[in-house]
């Protein structure tokens, strides 16, 4: 039952993918095309995509609220490099992901730590995302069965993992605003159809010519008072600055 593609909740790259896919949905005349076709097309499109982003991540728990500023680079879903810019204490902490492996660089101790399997399910930077989420790669159409439903205002794509897909979720719903063609929310259910997590999209803005929700909130339903918010301050697709040398150990360790 080991599968090459493993999923729990969307990676940041996947978030971008959803944004892209729904943005591109709007440019597709006919929404009658099957969900699979759409997503397939998206994936084809998305595979070569690189991105450069500047984001703010706010983590809320009943005990604290933490705001971080980060910049992130990515190529497809295989390579990602994220560096923390603020707060001062954490400035310079960086994460490098290559395929299914992940490393963290901690400038205070000048050390690169490879994230071991035992820490994969641990939270990334204290947020409601896990290391595992960041590392994941998506092949949605391969691993999930998709169905598309429509209401007057929304599209609903329901994803049910195939029997071999290794994920803790029993079902995922993507809800899309039909008119604006932007995502509204994603809901994650367990096997008994109980809602466990919710990702909400809001504050659509024009970024690089696309209408994209700039604010995403991840809310674990089973943990009261917990929330992670990601706000895209800047976002560029296929920027010229991106090249392979960013996604190396050397860059990970470099002085910044």
């Amino acid at each position: 039952m080991k599968s090459t593609s493993i999923q729990s909740i969307p990676t940041l790259a996947q978030l971008l993918f959803v944004l892209l896919s729904t943005a591109l949905l709007s440019s597709l005349a006919s929404a009658q095309e099957s969900a699979v076709d759409i997503i397939d097309a998206m994936e084809e499109l998305y595979r070569g995509e690189s991105s450069l982003a500047r984001m703010t991540m706010i983590v809320e728990t009943p005990q604290f609220q933490r705001t971080m500023e980060m910049e992130s680079s990515s190529i497809g879903t295989e390579k990602a490099f994220i560096r923390i810019l603020a707060p001062r204490k954490d400035r310079g902490i960086a994460t490098l992901k290559l395929d299914l492996e992940m490393w963290n660089y901690l400038p205070k101790i000048n050390k690169v730590i490879k994230v071991p399997p035992s820490m994969m399910m641990g939270s990334w930077m204290g947020s409601d995302f896990t290391n595992d989420d960041l590392v994941k790669q998506t092949t949605l159409t391969d691993d999930y069965d998709l169905t598309l439903e429509e209401t007057d205002t929304e599209y609903r794509i329901t994803l049910v993992p195939k029997s071999n897909t290794v994920t803790v979720w029993g079902k995922i719903d993507y809800n899309v605003n039909k008119e604006l063609m932007i995502p509204l929310s994603q809901n994650f259910y367990d096997d008994s159809d109980r809602l466990i997590r919710k990702m909400e999209f809001s504050e659509p803005r024009e970024i690089s010519g696309l209408l994209i929700p700039s604010r995403m909130e991840m809310i674990p339903i089973n943990k009261e008072g917990h929330k992670t918010v990601i706000i895209y301050d800047e976002l560029q697709f296929d920027p010229p600055e991106i090249d392979e040398s960013i996604f190396t150990m050397r860059n990970l360790r470099s002085r910044f």
Binding site: K2, L100, P116, P117, T165, V166, D190, D191
Partner: peptide
């Protein structure tokens, strides 16, 4: 009973990440 569980562990010898759905 029947609920899904994901095991995360390291493979022997190479320490690589391995997961299983049970």
């Amino acid at each position: 009973l029947g609920d899904r569980i994901v095991l995360t562990l390291s493979e022997v010898d190479n320490g690589e990440l391995a997961q299983a759905l049970l």
